[in-house]
Amino acid sequence: MSASRITDWDKAYSNTIYIPEGPDYPAKWEVAASAFRDEMRDAGRLREDISYGPHTRNRYDLFLPKAGARGLVVFVHGGFWMAFDKSAWSHLAAGPLAHGYAVAVPSYILTPEARVSDITRQIGAAIAAAAREIDGPLYIAGHSAGGHLVSRMTTATSPLQPDLAARLRKTVSISGLHDLRPLLNTEMNETLRLDIAEAHAESVALLEPLDGIDITCWVGADERPEFLRQNRLLENLWSSFNIEISSVEEAGRHHFDVIEGLADPDHRLVRTLLGV
């Protein structure tokens, strides 16, 4: 049986109204993140607001493990490229930190001030800046729009320089948006300002991957059908390339709690990201 034709694209990409107590999650993230930053600051393991560009939002926080870092993890937040900053996600650094990895969490200029293609370049610059601070292998993860941005780093038109891309060991796109063309049909495109040319150029699923990358697309099994489709899409289209690619649908998770595994050192999400 064929899938039903989508006629309401805004509804297809809406999350909050379909999640129990959905509107409460941003406040919960802020509380958890603030408490974690206080803990790390008191321990002398937090470097805050490190600049990677001229704008006030071109800043990242760097969380340090207890001993010398084994490598670097970068987490890129979501919000449909229009919302949030680094301050709501600090607690998600806990899982990789426990395994001895430094974790960078950047902010970026949001739409409509920036275009999606501008944000891609910002994230490339943020990763490069953090990688100059921390030696060793690089692991990147992002959620929703952040999932798009980290998977975009793995494409043939990545803003990462070849020497930095060579350090990349694993990418995990969590609830990532890999085909941006459907967003042209949404009201939020008044803010995103995507046109068909940019949607093509920035859609990871329409690009070729860098040779030899290792990427996992991860989604909550209880997410909206469009996010499940977007998650499967990249594995479907990239499976013939010389890369390692897999997809996971995590049971019992929705769009807002699927990221919580990053805070747990023993969670499968962390272990997948770090290869432990």
Rank of each mutant, 00 (worst) to 15 (best):
G44Q: 05
P54D: 05
R41K: 07
L64H: 05
V74S: 10
G71N: 11
M40I: 06
G68E: 15
R45F: 10
R45G: 07
P26S: 09
R59L: 07
G53E: 00
G68C: 12
Y25V: 13
G44Y: 00
K66A: 14
D49F: 12
H77Q: 08
E30R: 14
M40V: 08
E39N: 06
D38L: 12
F36L: 08
K28F: 13
A27G: 03
M82Y: 13
F75N: 04
L62D: 08
G68R: 15
D38G: 08
V74I: 07
R57Q: 08
P54V: 04
L62A: 07
V31D: 15
A43Y: 05
R37K: 13
W81Q: 03
P23D: 02
T56Q: 14
S34A: 13
A27Q: 09
D38Y: 03
L72R: 02
F75P: 01
K28L: 14
N58V: 01
H55P: 06
G79T: 06
R57W: 01
Y60R: 06
H55E: 07
A83Q: 06
E48R: 15
F75Y: 10
R70E: 08
A32T: 11
P23Q: 06
F80L: 04
K66H: 12
Y52I: 00
E39L: 09
G44I: 05
E48Y: 12
